[in-house]
């Protein structure tokens, strides 16, 4: 399976679990991904991080960055006294962090040690 397809599938999984369960479930999917995927570990934790970030960015785009919901951006910017782009970045950053750490942990939970690098 190519990397792009892996990335897309993983991002969809992250998005669905976020919508169905909540923010913390990204870590669970990350662990599963890291545990089940074969191959080189560093590559998979980066893929997990990028996919989680993309998933959250897509959710934000659909709900906030696109359409009438954009009016929320200046509001939250005023609310927290920071540029809205920073809040969006912080949000995506949380997804990236959880995707990365989950994938990393999952990869360490693989039964054999020869995959470890």
């Amino acid at each position: 399976m190519g990397s792009a397809i892996r990335l897309a599938i993983l991002a969809v999984a992250f998005a669905l679990i976020t919508i169905a369960v909540g923010w913390w479930a990204v870590a669970v999917v990350g662990v599963l991904w890291g545990r089940l995927a074969g191959g080189e570990i560093r590559y998979h934790r980066i893929l997990g991080a990028v996919a989680a970030g993309l998933a959250w960015l897509a959710i934000l785009t659909a709900g906030v960055l696109w359409g009438e919901g954009r009016a929320l951006l200046p509001t939250v910017s005023g609310l927290f006294s920071v540029p809205a782009v920073l809040l969006v970045a912080a949000t995506v950053g949380i997804g990236v962090l959880l995707g990365f750490l989950g994938s990393w942990l999952g990869s360490r939970l693989r039964p054999t040690s020869h995959h470890l690098t």
Binding site: G22, W23, G63, G69, R70
Partner: peptide
Amino acid sequence: LLDPYHGLWGVARSAA
């Protein structure tokens, strides 16, 4: 709070 779907960003979905 920053959950992109269930957090405050969700407020935008019910704006209209």
